Amino acid sequence: VAVAVIVIGYGAFPWIALTLAFSFGFYGLVKKQIGPAVDAVSGLTLESLWLLPVAAIQLGFVANLTGITLGTAGTLHTVLLLSAGAVTAVPLLLFASGARRVPLTVIGLLQFIAPIIQFAIGVWVLHEPMTVERWIGFALVWAALAILSVDSVIASRRHRRVPVDVAELA
């Protein structure tokens, strides 16, 4: 409902935002399903190998279009480019390791941290205009998150309370 309200207010369908949301949600689901069978390092290795052809094509495209800057734009630039892999890999390893240990619901709730930070920066630092439709959509998303959180707490408490049969104790 929140997306529908924002789309109506915006006047166009947010293809990029929804594609990113669904793709990362799907990624989290796959990591959760495969997680017990594959450790974090093996999983990241398989992901990297699967994406290697895509990366090679993209690197070739960029090389032909604008040129490669590795080693040509100064030492600091080269060091930053070479460290980009580790800066990317470490959070992915931590995510893969953590995704196996927590329920998918928790992973879903954690995915709202980055948008909250982006929202705060957009509104309070960059002074992005907030239309009425955006505020309504924002409120609907938070209402849904509150309902989900309350339901999760109730469900976890329900599972902790195991009824004891008095006849078995005798």
Rank of each mutant, 00 (worst) to 15 (best):
V1K: 10
V3A: 12
V5G: 04
V7D: 08
Y10G: 15
G11L: 11
P14I: 01
W15H: 15
A17F: 05
L18Y: 06
L20E: 11
L20Q: 14
L20C: 11
F24H: 13
F26W: 11
Y27T: 12
G28Q: 13
L29T: 10
L29Y: 12
G35R: 01
D39R: 07
V41M: 11
L44A: 15
E47P: 05
W50V: 15
W50R: 06
V54S: 10
A55Y: 10
Q58S: 12
Q58M: 12
L59P: 02
A63W: 06
N64M: 15
N64F: 12
G67Y: 04
G67W: 04
I68A: 09
T69L: 09
T69W: 05
G71Q: 08
G71K: 06
G71N: 03
G74T: 08
T75C: 02
T75H: 09
L76N: 03
L80N: 08
S83I: 14
S83T: 15
V87M: 13
P91I: 03
P91W: 00
P91C: 03
S97I: 01
R100T: 10
R100W: 00
L104I: 14
V106P: 06
I107P: 08
L110F: 13
A114N: 02
A114Y: 00
P115F: 00
I116S: 15
I117C: 02
Q118S: 15
I121W: 10
G122R: 04
W124I: 09
P129A: 13
P129L: 04
T131G: 15
V132T: 14
E133V: 00
I136P: 05
G137D: 09
F138I: 04
V141K: 00
A144F: 11
V150D: 05
D151C: 09
S152W: 10
S152V: 09
A155E: 15
S156C: 00
R157K: 04
R161G: 02
R161I: 04
R161M: 04
V162C: 01
V162N: 06
V162G: 02
P163Q: 00
V166G: 06
V166Q: 14
A170E: 13
